[in-house]
């Protein structure tokens, strides 16, 4: 266990000043996520253009440093990607948080991978994995226009 690995400077910084914490004007897809055990909640907004490229992505919500930083970094990375690429990045991230030692996605640049790997410290804290993954599951739900709220218990 290593708190320094969990609470890296970049996590604390994103947690304190989350990027894209707002509501996209003219969003055309959105979804809500909720962690009923701890009360974390997130609402992801997407604006896709005709080619299904993410023109804008934003989120609203509240949660711990891990969940806010994770949503913040996610929105930064997903902007400009198309739906297919974005979903592939989500798969890669969830795989890394669960078991994979590193990220494999070809849709992420090296510096983007480095940024995302800052969340890998969560692996050692099973109770906190849900904090890191809530916004990512919610993103997929927004793409798929699922109306039911994402719950981390599912």
């Amino acid at each position: 266990m290593n708190l320094k690995e969990l609470y890296q400077e970049i996590i604390l910084e994103h947690g304190k000043n989350p990027r894209n914490l707002r509501k996209t004007e003219n969003f055309n897809k959105d979804a809500k996520g909720n962690n009923p055990l701890c009360g974390d909640n997130v609402h992801v907004y997407l604006k896709l253009n005709g080619q299904k490229i993410v023109e804008d992505i934003s989120f609203e919500g509240s949660g711990c440093a891990i969940s806010m930083a994770s949503a913040s970094i996610m929105t930064d990375l997903i902007k400009g990607k198309n739906e297919h690429e974005a979903k592939e990045i989500v798969e890669d991230f969830l795989g890394m948080i669960k078991e994979n030692p590193e990220l494999k996605s070809e849709n992420l640049k090296e510096d983007e991978k480095t940024k995302l790997m800052c969340l890998s410290g969560v692996k050692q804290y099973p109770m906190r994995v849900k904090c890191a993954t809530l916004s990512w599951h919610t993103l997929v739900s927004a793409f798929d226009n699922k109306r039911e709220e994402i719950k981390t218990e599912n």
């Binding site: 266990m1 708190l3 974390d40 711990c64």
Partner: peptide, 12 residues
């Protein structure tokens, strides 16, 4: 500091 972060740090 969010309460969950407090709880994780105290747990250590």
């Amino acid at each position: 500091v969010h309460p969950h972060d407090i709880a994780t740090i105290l747990d250590e």
